[in-house]
Design a protein around this nucleic acid. Structure first.
Lengths: 315, 315
DNA sequence: CGCTACTATGTAACTAGTTACGTATTTAAT
DNA sequence: ATTAAATACGTAACTAGTTACATAGTAGCG
């Protein structure tokens, strides 16, 4: 069995390249067949010049999707063979306008014929196949534009890691974890304030008793995050004390904690969930937005570090 | 509009490459994401070694479809990073057996995980598309194995050029062409024999009068080939005096002439067409075979140069 | 045994691009 | 008018491979 079919889809890139190589390998032979004294790699540049009369280096590069350096090199080679000439732009001395020479222009009809034949050969090849390679490529290119391959891999990874995460309810044996996770998190960015200590040292009295909840995130049985839902009034709960261990970030744990809290709030008949944060914490704000929170203005905060209030309406 | 969609199918190769580049570009980032200290280009070699315990350079090269030189270079680099060791084969001192070191082996699980995620990402990407890129590639690869792209282009070219060829009946104003084409052709390979002169100088008397036919091939109105069908008896005709101008060969003109003669023979009620040739003329023999002629043994030839007889049964 | 042909490998040089960098020129902002 | 930023370009150095070549070892054959 062929190596690339064995290792499967991982090698899609290499596989595409091999197919491409196979096609372009024949290109040289084809140019020889048609007696067109053109290096296959010149083709894109040549084609642009055959259409445009004259063009700047960068302009060509943009059209054919190569670097300007590559075009510069190709034009130099073509010039050496007498196919192109260059001259400075009359208004802008930076620009080097490239043109086909008469000798270059004379190649056009033969190349046209060759292209027509190649086009037909490709069309024949593709129509012999059941699956439409051409449109498949176009489609995949489009899909990659909307979401890069790297982003896709990252999403898969995150989804997989989220599966190893479990969100459970707080119980007293988690008090130490709850405290440390939060102290650590606060110390990372701010000073610990007095209000913090109140909540962290006495979650029972300050959060749970008044009707709130606390959630713990386990990653492979290790406690890696926490988040509290404190009751403000009968219809409003506050999302607070969210902290995820540094080593466990990027696995979407914050999102799972946040979602658990929101679900609980809804279950408790809340009409909205409120939170306070700091605009400097971009990932956090980003997470809140993903969860559906929107910026509101209003109530003063007991915390110095808070400069933004957000709210999620549940009804 | 994008350049590659503008120039259409001609750029299929480049387009594949661009897509491949786009995917492999992300590969480096992905390896970083997973903290696998592996150069993406090492992957195929690494993978083989993770499966095989130990392998020779050439063996690896064959499996992954690279040159041995490439593998040699990669193994050297991997060795420098402490991922591989090499040792001489105990029986064959030419062979350099490559193995993963313990450090190398330790990368396997992490790489496995990465591969699984990448695989899933690719699968997701492909399943988002309507057209099945993966199978399209496999199919096109298969099609290219049965007929290379170069051969396909050549076939298109030939078909196109055949369209510019017209086969017409002989008339006296073609006598000069008929003579010169044949003298030229014979002189190319053999000496002109007396029997040749008889036919070439007096086609009217020797070929047409006895019930034979002569065909002329025009390529863009220029006479470029000829072929005669001589009557041997009521049910047998001989295909002879086929000649195509050197500059016009490779366009399938011989085939068109031969087919015209065969069609005429059938029209005249012949039961078989016979011919004599020389086994040294590979392209000619090849053509006759394509037309359906098969080797027969029999009658002596009036020509010295003939060492093979062929026949096509029409009934 | 010695010769020839083949195999396995490493190294060097090449290819078709790329990125990085330096220079000249233009444009925009004080 | 000056100065900073941006643009256009060329050159050099790098990348991931390739082909070509040299070398050492093996195998077969007379």
């Amino acid at each position: 069995m062929d190596f690339y079919s064995q290792i499967g889809k991982v090698a899609l890139g290499s596989r595409l390249r091999r197919l491409s190589d196979r096609l372009t390998e024949d290109a040289t032979k084809i140019y020889t067949l048609y007696n067109v004294a053109l290096d296959p790699k010149w083709f894109p540049v040549f084609y642009v010049l055959s259409q445009k009369e004259s063009a700047a280096i960068t302009e060509i590069a943009q059209i054919i999707g190569h670097s300007h350096a590559s075009v510069s090199q190709i034009v130099k080679e073509m010039g050496k063979r007498g196919l192109t000439t260059t001259e400075k732009h009359s208004q802008d001395a930076r620009i080097n306008l490239v043109k086909l020479t008469e000798a270059g222009r004379q190649l056009i009809p033969r190349l046209d014929q060759q292209c027509a034949d190649v086009d037909q050969a490709v069309a024949g090849l593709l129509s012999d196949a059941q699956n439409d390679l051409y449109n498949a490529i176009a489609e995949v290119e489009f899909l990659l534009t909307s979401k890069s391959f790297f982003d896709r891999v990252q999403a898969v990874r995150k989804a997989r890691e989220q599966q190893a995460v479990e969100i459970i309810d707080y119980s007293p044996e988690f008090h130490d974890d709850f405290k440390h996770l939060n102290y650590e998190w606060i110390a990372e960015h701010f000073d610990v304030e007095d209000a913090d200590r109140q909540y962290l040292e006495h979650p029972d009295k300050k959060i749970l008793k008044p009707g709130g909840h606390i959630f713990m995130a386990l990653y492979n049985t290790e406690v890696v995050g926490t988040c509290a839902l404190a009751k403000m009034d009968d219809t409003t709960y506050e999302l607070a004390k969210m902290a995820v261990k540094k080593s466990a970030r990027g696995k979407g744990i914050g999102q799972l904690l946040g979602q658990a809290a929101i679900n609980k709030a809804r279950e408790l008949g809340a009409e909205r969930v409120y939170l306070e944060s700091n605009t400097g914490l971009a990932p956090a704000i980003n997470l809140y937005q993903k969860l559906g929170f929107q910026k509101v203005v209003g109530k003063p905060s007991p915390y110095e570090r808070c400069n933004i209030q957000m709210e999620l309406k549940l009804v």
